[in-house]
Simulated assay, not measured.
Amino acid sequence: MSDSNTTTFTNPSIFILMGNPGLETSYIWISIPFCTMYIIAVLGNFTIMFIVKTEQSLHEPMYYFLCMLEIIDLILSTSTLPKTLSIFWFNSREIDFNACLTQMFFIHCFSSMESGILVAMALDRYVAICDPLKHSTILTNRMVAKIGLAVGLHSSILALPYPFLTRHWSYCKTNIIPHSYCAHIAVVKLACTDTQLSSYYSLFVLFSVNGVDVIFIIVSYTQILRAIFRLPTKEDRLKTFGTCGSHLCPISALYIPDFFSALTHRYGHNVPLHFLILFANVYLLMPPMLHPIIYGMRTKQIRDRLLQLFTRKES
């Protein structure tokens, strides 16, 4: 262990994840809300997918996209939290070099997929509200499958350069990562070669890919709001806006922390490291926990089906 920490090497066999430096005495207390959020996320997401699968009236593009979002949430949270909890509970800090790169790929790939599916859901709401007569002919089951496949391929291609570039850097002096998972920027900081290409690529993805997704969503909802305000009665406007409100919360929960986390890691030199790491963990756990709650509470069909399940159990 000491040799790997003091010599220059390329492709170390293992990295050492430090967890959250500075908060070691609070690991047990920190793990309680993390574990609770993960349990809620798993139970909530599986419940939503079960309801959509068993309820025939929910076999529509909006709910197919929602199931894709739930699957992405489960994979994204599961790719990081078990290792984080093993550090907090068992002091299991070692992670294989290839496993670290795989974790890095999963984080970036499925974060990008989440963004892509939110764009697809915005497209679905746009067609349903602005051109409802063509909704069933445009967003067929075949088209929904093609969109899901396109989002998956697009995200995989975008995420591949992260582990590819990281694998080819030379690492010097230490293999200790001051983080609870293999965050790209935390690993890159260990390299002793010029990593500007990796940094520029991260910023490119953040602004030109995620930024384009945000712009597309804003344009879609601008058109949706214009269509809503043209509806004849207040009841119709409120009902139509209600179908979109459940979508706006996950959008905010994804993009605002995403941009905040990426920019503070690069330019927030005065922000305490333990806060950045804590925020990075919460950022990956919050959307998977919130999505089933938001859609379960604000989507009438899902809410009614949930009530039916609970009332049957009680009777």
Results as ranks from 00 to 15, higher is better:
residue 214 V to M: 13
residue 185 I to H: 07
residue 236 D to C: 13
residue 181 Y to G: 08
residue 228 I to C: 04
residue 169 W to R: 10
residue 152 G to I: 05
residue 194 D to E: 01
residue 183 A to G: 12
residue 224 I to L: 03
residue 143 M to N: 14
residue 200 Y to F: 03
residue 168 H to N: 15
residue 234 K to W: 10
residue 232 P to V: 07
residue 180 S to H: 09
residue 163 P to H: 01
residue 183 A to K: 08
residue 228 I to W: 04
residue 177 I to Q: 04
residue 208 S to W: 15
residue 195 T to L: 00
residue 159 A to N: 00
residue 190 L to S: 02
residue 205 V to F: 00
residue 193 T to L: 03
residue 153 L to H: 02
residue 150 A to R: 04
residue 229 F to R: 11
residue 140 T to W: 01
residue 168 H to M: 13
residue 149 L to Y: 12
residue 161 P to K: 00
residue 168 H to Y: 14
residue 140 T to Q: 03
residue 152 G to F: 14
residue 195 T to D: 09
residue 180 S to G: 11
residue 141 N to Q: 12
residue 164 F to K: 06
residue 209 V to W: 03
residue 173 K to Q: 14
residue 188 V to K: 01
residue 194 D to G: 03
residue 148 G to K: 07
residue 214 V to E: 07
residue 161 P to R: 05
residue 166 T to W: 03
residue 185 I to F: 06
residue 146 K to N: 12
residue 199 S to K: 01
residue 167 R to V: 10
residue 171 Y to M: 09
residue 207 F to M: 02
residue 219 V to I: 15
residue 163 P to R: 07
residue 163 P to S: 05
residue 189 K to L: 04
residue 214 V to T: 11
residue 168 H to A: 10
residue 160 L to K: 02
residue 149 L to E: 11
residue 199 S to W: 02
residue 187 V to E: 05
residue 231 L to N: 03
residue 173 K to V: 13
residue 204 F to A: 08
residue 209 V to H: 07
residue 221 Y to H: 13
residue 233 T to N: 11
residue 162 Y to P: 09
residue 139 L to A: 09
residue 141 N to M: 11
residue 171 Y to I: 08
residue 214 V to K: 04
residue 142 R to F: 11
residue 193 T to R: 02
residue 209 V to Q: 10
residue 223 Q to C: 14
residue 186 A to V: 00
residue 233 T to P: 13
residue 162 Y to R: 07
residue 221 Y to C: 04
residue 206 L to M: 13
residue 155 S to C: 10
residue 205 V to Q: 05
